[in-house]
Write a protein that binds this DNA or RNA. Structure first.
Lengths: 199, 199
DNA sequence: GTAAATAATCTAACACCGTTAAGCAAATGT
DNA sequence: ACATTTGCTTAACGGTGTTAGATTATTTAC
């Protein structure tokens, strides 16, 4: 009675089909327009059978997130194992992380919640750029280099923003669960970047 | 006939009421469950009248985003004007940014798309922590300090992650529109942080 | 081989969503 | 007093995630 296994294999296959179909839809039309009925269409079933494979839509997203983490970990590990000197390893690992994000854009968005709304938003929202200019001014003054080029300031600003925004994200996501950042740590980070700016 | 103005003032008032009600709902139940009908309920109207004040739901979010940016800019500017020494100014400005994010959590999420999904997600997803440990190992090796405390490594990791994640976010959001980050810039940033790590 | 039981799948429906059109009722202009 | 505009509501459309019930196909038992 090996048909049990064959059936189990088939079930596993449509489970994977659901995940693949979902990712395909998202790649074509974005997370916003992923719906159970569209998934069902793509795998040539009707919507309710999806619930035989996943508890609900969130379950699908969860599984894709897991898939993302596994892929990411594999990439990072591979980069690590390819070298032996720690500093070089660390660099390669972060580059692997970076590459993963852009090779698996949709998964990365799902895993870390990068909202793409802002994309066209900034064009019609001048207010979004006002505060930037304040930072630009002051960064320019902090830089020891006299009259630094615009794009260098820009890069410094983005480095700053990255750190602060990243720290905020962590604190919001990990809220309550250990690892709370206090103001001292924030100040340390800022001082560190200011020092880094003038290298 | 000054009643024209009175009416205009009333209209402006319910416009503000809509925005306030929206933010209230979001503070109570999150962005996910903000709906036109709920807003209408809260301002004691029916859903369609909202469309007399905003083109659609996105219009409301857009206005709240604008409000966020104006508030943020005011905070940052105030911090800036309170000091005169550039480095101190810069620090105060980023602290103001930080404070804004946590005093206006919901607005910050809207402005920069911090997805709160992950919050409870990480508890049921051990895969999400595997790659962290790889980084922990290597960061430990890179640090010159022999046998550094766990939470210091953690902090260094988060600094790294913040920069990389921030840079990725910028590149995803600003995709196509100038300011593209190439690998060289990424590598520079990584080298910079490695140097910063050992201070 | 036929009947019963089980599994696989679909249809229909529920409650909600954003949004629009039609209609009513009160206030306004003439 | 009548006509017109305004403010607001009800009803509906097409969409969403999800569930229950009916239907069909497959397997099992005799």
């Amino acid at each position: 009675m090996g048909s049990k296994e064959r059936i189990a294999r088939l079930k596993e296959e449509t489970r994977i089909n659901i995940l693949d179909a979902s990712l395909d839809i998202v790649k074509d039309e974005g997370w916003q327009s992923l719906s159970m009925r569209k998934i069902a269409d793509k795998i040539e079933y009707t919507a309710p059978i999806i619930y035989e494979y996943f508890a609900n839509k969130e379950g699908i997203l969860l599984e894709l997130t897991r898939k993302g983490y596994i892929l990411l970990t594999a990439s990072v590990r591979k980069a690590m194992n390819g070298l032996s000197e720690p500093a070089a390893q660390l660099e390669a690992m972060w580059i692997a992380y970076w590459d993963f994000a852009f090779e698996n854009r949709e998964l990365y968005q799902l895993m870390f919640g990068v909202d793409m709304n802002c994309c066209e938003l900034k064009k019609i929202m001048p207010e979004a750029e006002v505060s930037n200019q304040l930072y630009f001014e002051i960064i320019k003054e902090v830089m020891e280099d006299e009259d630094p080029p615009e794009d260098l300031i820009c890069r410094k600003y983005y480095t700053f923003w990255s750190v602060i925004h990243g720290l905020i994200s962590i604190n919001m996501v990990n809220k309550g669960r250990g690892m709370e950042m206090n103001e001292q740590i924030l100040k340390d980070a800022i001082k560190g970047i200011i020092k880094y700016i003038n290298d």
